[in-house]
Structures are given as C-alpha cells and as structure tokens.
Design a binder for these strands. Sequence first.
DNA 1: TGCCTAAAAATTGTATGCGATATGCAAAAA
DNA 2: TTTTTGCATATCGCATACAATTTTTAGGCA
Lengths: 249, 249
Amino acid sequence: MSASTKRPRGRPPLRRPPGSSRRKATFSALHAQALGTLRKMIVTGELKAGERIAEAAVCDLLGISRTPLREALKLLAAEGLVELRPNRGATITPLRAAEIAALFEAVSGIERIAAELAAARMTPAEIRRLHALQMRMEEHFKRGERTEYFRLNQEIHQFIVAGAKNEVLTSTHAFLLARAERARYLALNTQERWEQSVSEHRGILKALEEGRGDDAGRLLGEHVAHTGVAVSANLMSQTGKPAADIVEI
Amino acid sequence: MSASTKRPRGRPPLRRPPGSSRRKATFSALHAQALGTLRKMIVTGELKAGERIAEAAVCDLLGISRTPLREALKLLAAEGLVELRPNRGATITPLRAAEIAALFEAVSGIERIAAELAAARMTPAEIRRLHALQMRMEEHFKRGERTEYFRLNQEIHQFIVAGAKNEVLTSTHAFLLARAERARYLALNTQERWEQSVSEHRGILKALEEGRGDDAGRLLGEHVAHTGVAVSANLMSQTGKPAADIVEI
DNA sequence: TGCCTAAAAATTGTATGCGATATGCAAAAA
DNA sequence: TTTTTGCATATCGCATACAATTTTTAGGCA
C-alpha cells in the first residue's frame, strides 16, 4: 500500500480497507477513467440499450466508490449515452429510430461543413496521408475484411473533420460519434452498399484533393446521410444484427 | 424540519445540522440547480474569465455541499465553460481569440445546416411567428433598445434552429451557444453593424418564407460569421467593453 | 533583502454514512 | 379472484470525513 509506505508516524492506516485508494498515481482521475471505460462498454455494446446501471455492481466491477461513478454517469448522460431519472438511477439510452435519424442528419451536416473547410485547409502532406488511408481502406474492401475496413473508415471520417482545423467542430463531431457508433451493428452492410460507400469515398477524396470545397462537403454529407438511412431502415425493421454487421459513417 | 416532522420514532435527528437537507422537494436535483446557476453566472459575466472557483466559497454561496457542486463543475467543464486541472480545482475558461473564432465558425455552420432544413420543415404558423419575432426585434432596433433587441435576436436564432426539427442539432447548438454568449460584451455593436445585422435578418427571413433553403442557410451562416469576425477583432484588440455592448448571434 | 526549506494550512479527490425515495412481496380487504 | 395496504429491502442523492496534494507562511541563512 503506497499510503501506508508513506506514513511517517507508525500508526496503522485509518479506515483504509485493503485495495481501496483515495488517490491513485494515474494519468487521469477515477471519474474520468470510469467515464472512458463505461463509454467504451456502451459504444461496443457490452452494456446494452435499455440496460439498468446498478451503481453498487458497477462500483464493484470498476473497483471504485460511488462518487466518481456518479460523476461519470452524469457526464455520460450529457453525452446522451445514458439516461438519468431522478431517484431511479441510470439506464443505457435505447436506440430510438427518430433519434438515430436526427443524429445521422446532424453528423452529416457537421461533416459537410468540416469537409468544406478541410478542402481549403488541409496541407498537401495531409492530403497524401488521406489518400494513403483510402488506399488501405480499399485493400480491406477487396479482401472482404469488414472490421479493418470499418476502423479505417472511421479514421478517414475523423481525419477529414480534423482537416477543418476547427477544434470546436472536431470535438462536437467526436461527441456525437460515440452515440452514432452504437448503431453500427444495425447497418445492413450489404455488398452493394459497401461498393457504393467505397465509390462515395473516392469522390470525396478527389474533391478534397482538388480543393473543391463545395463538392467535398456535399459528397461527404450525402455519404453520411446514406448511412443514416440504412441504419434507420434497419432499426425500424428491428432486425438487430450481431456485431459482424458494421455501420459505416 | 420536514425530516423531523416525518420521523415516527421520537428520536432526535441523527447528525442533522439545522438548515441542511439531504433531499429537497424541488423540481430538479441540486447538481442540476447548481449547474444552471453557475452556467448563468458564467454566461452573464458575474464569474469572470480566468477566475478561480473555490469550492468551499461556492458551496456557501449556493447553500449546498461539495458533492453536487463537483458534479456540476464537471458538467460545466464538458460544456467548456470551466477548465478543470487535477488537484488544482476549477477556473472559468478564458476567452481565447482562436477558440472564440472556432466557436463562431462552428455555430455559423450549424445554423446554416439548420436553416436549410428549417426552410423545408417550418410550418406556415411557425413562419408567421418568426415574422412576428422579427418585427418586434426591428421595433427594438428603431427605439435603440439594445438589451431587448439582443434578447429577441437570440430567440430568433434559436427559433430558426428549432425549425429544423432535429433535436440533436438543437441541443448541440444550445451547448455551443452558452460559450458564444459569453463573448457578447466583446462585440462592438456599432450603429453600422447593427443596421447591417437587421438587414441580414430580413434576408434570412425572406429566404425562409420562400422556402429557399440554400439561401437561408448561406445567409444565416454568413450572418453568424460576420458576428464572429466582429467579436474576434474586438477580443484581439483587448478593448473589453462593459456589458452595454451586446454581441449579436 | 532575497532565497530556501520545513511546517502549517488550505484545497482537492474519493470513500462512506445517513436519510429519502422507490421497489417488491406478503397479507388483508373488497 | 382482484385490489389495496403495509412492511422490508434496495437504491439514490447528498453531506461529511479522510487522506493526498497544493499553497501559504514562518524561520533561518547568506
């Protein structure tokens, strides 16, 4: 125990059960760790839509007390990933068709704005890097590697948004993306849609390379909107698929 | 004491100092009340940029314990209104020129998207209401009533965004607006800029009335961008004005 | 007078306890 | 049989305590 080793006065620890710690020598606070851990569990589907979050159980799971957990839950609620009701605790936010549709529409708009700005602001080196990312993504497409394709796809979207050189847009985009990512298993990623998506990405890349901001914005916005439509349609039909089906943003 | 009047067992209250309460019969939780109160104090400038937030003092001021206050502070940090540093507490976020510029650019983009959608989605009744709001705002302009003008102006912007019928856009806009509103004393709201602003609003209204989504979006986006330019210029010159100078969004 | 160091005081992050509220279950009443 | 009531238990929101960290103060020395 680090605290007991630092104690200069020879007395036993006061009310200090084994394994607990008031302050750990970590990079981030307990509440921030809990926030990150829970966010990931929600985004990856480990915590399911509609599921109750029992504070005591999650405290045991994460090895922390209720205070930082409650702080983290409030932040997750602000992100829309959980819903708090007074005196009733927290539940994982359900995937509601109308909300998901609104979410994709908003993300589509934000990416469109970002792409317009990125067309004017990305450096030649950044354009080259984007080109390389696209090439790798297409390799994964050719080999039918969905998981890797999806990872590259996400990276490309975020890279373009970052190319706008506007931190508010970037953080807003990231804020919304966590919620959108939850719906990924809902996209029926058919071969047809997959091919269409790759084609759309080519158009977006070309527009960015040629500095055509209006086109880049329009194409990226439409691309995200198409994905939103696919997700919403699948959510409506309630044919929830296992994680092998991957949403594209 | 409500708790003591409810006590059925005749014992004195346990560790219950006078004036404290675990749970008040209020509409919202203490953390949420603290959040709203502090947000308002920051936005109105009562809490100044760069100012330290001493937990103990604010607890005394708000009449609550540290727990809900710390929860509120974390949410305010997520909103960008305060900055938290580990072991050093909270400070009110400074107004940094580059961040304010990015903020207005992002708000400009979001309002542009929202206006495009609103042009297609607002009902005739809503358009009439918007028209009425504009008329009232112009009355305030004619009479030189800045405070009232500003209030109507804010209402119009939010009304247009709400007209998009997209809750994600609306909440994202509101999220960013609190930060943007803090800079309002920085806009040199000259007579010239004021007239220009009114004129711009007329163009926006007309485009919305005629369902010209592309125009509505472009005009609103440019309008907000102009405001951002004015704010940034003033922030750069560090000629912080008293609250009589009102930013326009 | 200025700098350095150690000690004291203040503040912060987290853990824990208490009272209020919600939930579940069994018994009583309709 | 169904509905209502009462009680026990679980959970939530907040206040407070504790330990760690930071800041301030005081004293010594050059």
